[in-house]
Amino acid sequence: MSFRSGLPIPTPLPLPPAETPCSATDGPWCEVVYQVTGTDWLARASSVVIDGAIKTVLIVALAVLVRSLLHRGVRRLARGAGEGHLPALLRPLRDRGAQRLQMAAVLSERRRQRAATIGSLLRSIVSLVIYGIAFVLILGEFGVNLAPILASAGVIGLAVGFGAQNLVKDFLSGIFMMLEDQYGVGDTVDLGPASGTVESIGLRVTTIRDAEGTLWYVRNGEISRVGNHSQHFSIALIDVPVGHGTNIPHATAIAEAAAREAVTEAPLAANVLGEVSVLGVQSVTAEAVTLRLTVTTKPGQQVAVRRAMFGAVSTAFTQAQIPPPTTAPSTAVPATPGQGLAG
């Protein structure tokens, strides 16, 4: 107590602390925001908003980092697959044609395209999975009840999957076709619904150009079997008919010599992988005796080699005067006078 003019002046008592709407469960940011804004609801929600924002930034940053690392790993894996270097886990996915022809050191354009396509698909899957998990975690940080959302998403996904099962089947078939290297762009294939040269491969459809120039769009889910004429190696096979009474050993020697001469000349010699094999008599009919010859060629080159062999053997048979096949007698009944004029 102090004195002024002889009168005592009372010392003011300290004011009680101002009451705040914050409780222990509102977090440390509640009082700070209340002192700045003086707003109850904003102060109580500040911890949820600020903590949620901080955690959201951390989740997004972690998701971007993980995605970047995984994308880098996928790119390195795809680059190694394109160059022919694969880890032991993925060695069954190596290009089969290069293995069979002992050309694994050659950087084929087909292998690079296949590796780039698979790498792009894997990167898309990685991004979708990581960002989906990050989105769910962010919703959980803001107190969103995820159980109804996940249940609804499951029901919607089941309905969409059931309604679009053909589309899902096409995509899954396309993925496995690329992983297993069943065919590539430029291959001559027989897919059942269509046959021809593959022009493009997608996750849903494969486009094929047939011999007449028609472009076919074949859904991957409809392909139940694949006959690839351009993978590993091909075989040029010709059946040469000769007439009855022909000296078979003599005709066989002439055919073998002519076929070998045809395949050893340029430019066919670069497409032949083995020697001409004479399998002998293939069949005997009332019209002719058929001789069969084969030779192994590079993939897709069997048609050109077959034509050259057949032309050479036919010319050699003509020069050697090998009897041609006999023509079967006509079985048609000759018309009698007045037949067909009734009516």
Rank of each mutant, 00 (worst) to 15 (best):
S127C: 13
A116R: 12
L69H: 07
G97W: 04
Q102E: 11
R94G: 05
S127R: 08
Q99W: 11
A98R: 00
R110V: 04
R67G: 12
S124R: 13
R123H: 09
L70Q: 10
R94I: 05
R114E: 02
I118S: 03
I118V: 15
S68G: 14
L93W: 06
G97E: 09
S124C: 12
G80M: 05
G73I: 01
T117P: 00
A88E: 12
I118A: 07
I125C: 14
L121S: 12
R110A: 08
S124Q: 14
Q102C: 03
S120Q: 14
L86K: 00
R111A: 00
I130H: 03
R75L: 11
R96S: 08
P87Q: 11
R76T: 07
R96A: 08
Q99G: 11
R100H: 12
R110C: 01
A105N: 09
G119D: 05
G80S: 09
V129D: 08
S68A: 15
R96V: 05
G73M: 11
P92E: 05
I130M: 08
L121D: 10
E109T: 09
L69N: 06
L69R: 11
T117S: 15
R114I: 02
V129T: 13
R114S: 03
P92H: 06
L122C: 12
A98Q: 08
R111G: 01
R96N: 01
R91W: 10
L101V: 05
M103I: 00
L101Y: 01
S68R: 14
R79D: 13
R67T: 14
S127I: 10
R100I: 14
G84L: 04
G80D: 04
V74I: 15
I118D: 04
A88M: 06
Q102L: 10
L90M: 13
Q102A: 13
L122P: 02
R110D: 06
A116G: 07
R91H: 09
R112Y: 04
D95K: 00
R96G: 09
R76G: 08
L107D: 01
R100E: 12
R114V: 03
Q102W: 05
P92N: 06
T117D: 15
S120T: 14
S68I: 02
R76K: 13
L122G: 02
L90R: 09
L89F: 13
R94W: 04
A116V: 08
V106Q: 06
L65N: 09
P92T: 09
R67D: 15
G84S: 09
A98D: 09
I130P: 02
L101D: 05
G119P: 03
Q102H: 13
R123S: 15
L93V: 09
A105I: 02
R91P: 03
L93F: 14
R67L: 14
L107Y: 01
L93T: 12
R100F: 15
L69I: 08
V126T: 12
A81V: 01
P87K: 08
H71P: 00
P92Y: 07
H85Q: 13
A104S: 12
L65C: 14
I125P: 03
I130N: 05
Q99T: 10
D95Q: 05
R79E: 12
P92S: 08
L89S: 13
S120P: 00
V74D: 05
A81S: 10
L86Y: 01
L101G: 00
V126G: 06
R91L: 11
